[in-house]
Deep mutational scan, measured.
Amino acid sequence: MASQGTKRSYEQMETDGERQNATEIRASVGKMIGGIGRFYIQMCTELKLSDYEGRLIQNSLTIERMVLSAFDERRNKYLEEHPSAGKDPKKTGGPIYRRVNGKWMRELILYDKEEIRRIWRQANNGDDATAGLTHMMIWHSNLNDATYQRTRALVRTGMDPRMCSLMQGSTLPRRSGAAGAAVKGVGTMVMELVRMIKRGINDRNFWRGENGRKTRIAYERMCNILKGKFQTAAQKAMMDQVRESRNPGNAEFEDLTFLARSALILRGSVAHKSCLPACVYGPAVASGYDFEREGYSLVGIDPFRLLQNSQVYSLIRPNENPAHKSQLVWMACHSAAFEDLRVLSFIKGTKVLPRGKLSTRGVQIASNENMETMESSTLELRSRYWAIRTRSGGNTNQQRASAGQISIQPTFSVQRNLPFDRTTIMAAFNGNTEGRTSDMRTEIIRMMESARPEDVSFQGRGVFELSDEKAASPIVPSFDMSNEGSYFFGDNAEEYDN
C-alpha cells in the first residue's frame, strides 16, 4: 500500500469516517454492505422474486439502478423543472426478469421514488447511507470498465484509444464523492478537466460571474484530485501550473494530454476495490451473516471469500459463452479491467482472455432483445487465490505491452514486471518541450526514458491461498515475461453508450 500519510484510507472515504482504527473501519464497511443486503432482500420480497430470480444479476442491476435514481437529487430536480413526455419524475423502474413456464419473461416495473427511498433508509437504520449508494455506483463503473473500451470518449477529448488503461471510473457520476474520486484513473480526471476547458473556450461566460466562481472551485478541486494521483514531483508541479492558470485554454489542454500520456509509464495511484452486485450481499445477509459484527474490507480476502460461497446467475444470449460472461463479471467484481492478464489468470486459476476474444456482450439486456431465446446460467466467480488490492500504480518500471492497449494499471499487489510499449508511448511525445512547463516536461520525458521494462514492481508481494486469511504465506508467482498482458488488445469491444 502506498503510505497513507495525511490521506484517509478508502474504507474511511467509503464510510465518510473520520480517523478510525482498522477494526472500526471493518465494522463501518460491514455496516454499509449489510445495509445493501437488507435493502436487496426487501426489494425481492416487494417484487415477489423467487430465490433464483433474486440471484439473477440482471435483476440486481435494475434494483441497484432504481435506488441510485431515487437518490439522484440533481436529476430529480431537473426532471421536475423540465417535464418530458412519458417520463414521470417521481417514478423509477426498469426490467425485471421472471421464469414463467420454463421461459424467461421481461416485466417492466415502476415504483415511486419516495417508496424506494423509504425501503433503502429502513434497511440502513434510517440513514441515507450515501456510502452504500456510492458502492453500487463503483460496481456499475467497474462493470462498464470491463465491458467497454471507451474509444470515442478518448478520441473526443484528444487522447489515444490505446490509453484505455487510464480510464478507470470514466462512467462514474460526478456525485460519487471521495470514494469515487479515489477509483478514477488519470485519464478519467484528464477527460473531465478537458471537457471543462473546452467549454470555457467555447463559452465566454463559463468562468464568469457567480456560476463561474463555482465552476472555478470545481476545476481547482479536480486538479488537486489529479495532482494527488501522480507520484513524481515534476508531474505534480505541472498540475500546479494547470490549476493556477488564470484562464484555462489550449496550453492547459496540451499540458493535460501530455500528463495523461506520461501516466502510461509514470503511473498514478488509483484505488481498486472489489464492489459486488447487491444480489451477492442480499443472500449472505439472508443466511444470517452479520457483516457489521464480522467486519468487512473491500481490499482484502473478504470479497473473494464471499464470491467463493455465492451463487449468481445471468441471462445468456443464444451465441454467448457462459464462461466468457463469467470472466467479464469476475473482472468487474475485482475492479480488474486494466490489470495484467498474466496476473489475473494466476489468481483466477483459469486463463483470462483479452476482451476481443470473449464471445459475450454486456450483462444488460436491451429492451428490444428477444426473450424467447434467452437461457440462463451460473456465473463462475470463484478464484484459485486471493491478493491484496493496490492503491498505487506500482513502481515506475515497465515491460512490453500489446498493440491495442499500451500499458496497464495494476489492481493487485503482486510481484511482476509491468508491461508497456515504450516505443509507441515515446513516439507520441513530439519533443515539444517549450513553453512555461518546459523544464517539467524535459524531466518527465527523462524519467520515462530511463524506466526499464525488466524491473520488478511490488517486490516480494504474492497471492494467498483462500485458507490464508491473515495473509501469512505469500506465494510469489513467476510470469512468462514475453507473454501478452493487455485486456483490450487489438480490440473490438462495443462502445459504451450512456
Rank of each mutant, 00 (worst) to 15 (best):
residue 1 M to R: 13
residue 2 A to F: 00
residue 6 T to Y: 02
residue 13 M to H: 00
residue 17 G to P: 15
residue 18 E to D: 14
residue 19 R to Y: 00
residue 25 I to G: 04
residue 25 I to V: 14
residue 27 A to W: 10
residue 31 K to Y: 07
residue 32 M to W: 06
residue 33 I to T: 14
residue 36 I to N: 10
residue 36 I to F: 12
residue 36 I to C: 10
residue 37 G to F: 09
residue 42 Q to C: 04
residue 43 M to V: 10
residue 45 T to K: 05
residue 48 K to Y: 02
residue 52 Y to W: 09
residue 54 G to S: 15
residue 55 R to F: 13
residue 57 I to C: 14
residue 57 I to S: 04
residue 58 Q to D: 02
residue 59 N to I: 08
residue 60 S to F: 06
residue 62 T to F: 05
residue 64 E to N: 04
residue 66 M to G: 03
residue 69 S to D: 05
residue 73 E to T: 00
residue 86 G to K: 06
residue 90 K to S: 04
residue 90 K to H: 07
residue 92 T to M: 08
residue 102 G to Y: 08
residue 112 D to Y: 12
residue 114 E to T: 12
residue 116 I to Q: 01
residue 117 R to C: 14
residue 118 R to S: 12
residue 123 A to D: 11
residue 123 A to R: 07
residue 125 N to P: 05
residue 129 A to L: 12
residue 129 A to D: 06
residue 133 L to V: 14
residue 135 H to T: 12
residue 137 M to K: 10
residue 139 W to L: 13
residue 143 L to T: 15
residue 143 L to K: 03
residue 146 A to I: 04
residue 150 R to G: 10
residue 157 T to P: 01
residue 157 T to C: 15
residue 163 M to W: 01
residue 164 C to D: 00
residue 181 A to F: 06
residue 182 A to E: 09
residue 185 G to I: 01
residue 186 V to C: 06
residue 186 V to S: 03
residue 196 M to L: 15
residue 203 D to P: 01
residue 203 D to F: 05
residue 205 N to C: 10
residue 207 W to M: 10
residue 208 R to A: 00
residue 208 R to M: 11
residue 208 R to T: 06
residue 208 R to I: 03
residue 218 A to I: 14
residue 221 R to I: 11
residue 222 M to T: 11
residue 231 Q to P: 09
residue 232 T to Y: 08
residue 233 A to E: 03
residue 235 Q to R: 09
residue 236 K to C: 14
residue 238 M to Y: 03
residue 242 V to E: 10
residue 247 N to L: 15
residue 249 G to P: 06
residue 249 G to Q: 09
residue 251 A to P: 09
residue 255 D to N: 13
residue 256 L to D: 04
residue 258 F to L: 11
residue 262 S to P: 10
residue 263 A to M: 06
residue 264 L to I: 13
residue 269 S to R: 00
residue 270 V to W: 03
residue 270 V to I: 14
residue 271 A to S: 14
residue 273 K to D: 03
residue 282 G to F: 15
residue 286 A to H: 11
residue 286 A to P: 11
residue 287 S to K: 13
residue 288 G to M: 08
residue 292 E to R: 02
residue 293 R to H: 11
residue 306 L to A: 06
residue 306 L to V: 15
residue 314 S to V: 13
residue 317 R to W: 05
residue 320 E to A: 06
residue 325 K to N: 10
residue 329 V to F: 01
residue 338 F to P: 01
residue 339 E to R: 00
residue 340 D to N: 11
residue 345 S to L: 04
residue 347 I to S: 06
residue 348 K to W: 05
residue 349 G to W: 10
residue 351 K to T: 13
residue 351 K to L: 11
residue 355 R to M: 06
residue 360 T to F: 06
residue 365 I to F: 11
residue 367 S to H: 05
residue 373 T to G: 08
residue 373 T to Q: 01
residue 374 M to Y: 14
residue 378 T to K: 13
residue 379 L to V: 12
residue 386 W to F: 09
residue 393 G to K: 02
residue 394 G to I: 02
residue 395 N to W: 00
residue 395 N to A: 12
residue 399 Q to E: 05
residue 400 R to I: 02
residue 400 R to Q: 09
residue 401 A to T: 11
residue 401 A to G: 14
residue 402 S to D: 07
residue 408 I to L: 15
residue 413 S to L: 11
residue 414 V to I: 15
residue 416 R to S: 06
residue 419 P to R: 01
residue 422 R to M: 06
residue 424 T to A: 14
residue 425 I to W: 04
residue 426 M to R: 03
residue 427 A to D: 02
residue 432 N to S: 10
residue 435 G to T: 10
residue 443 E to H: 06
residue 445 I to P: 01
residue 447 M to P: 00
residue 450 S to K: 05
residue 451 A to P: 05
residue 455 D to S: 14
residue 457 S to K: 07
residue 458 F to Y: 14
residue 459 Q to D: 14
residue 467 S to P: 07
residue 468 D to N: 12
residue 479 F to L: 11
residue 480 D to T: 08
residue 481 M to V: 15
residue 484 E to T: 14
residue 484 E to S: 01
residue 488 F to K: 04
residue 490 G to P: 08
residue 491 D to G: 10
residue 492 N to C: 14
residue 494 E to R: 04
residue 494 E to A: 14
residue 497 D to M: 13
residue 498 N to Q: 15
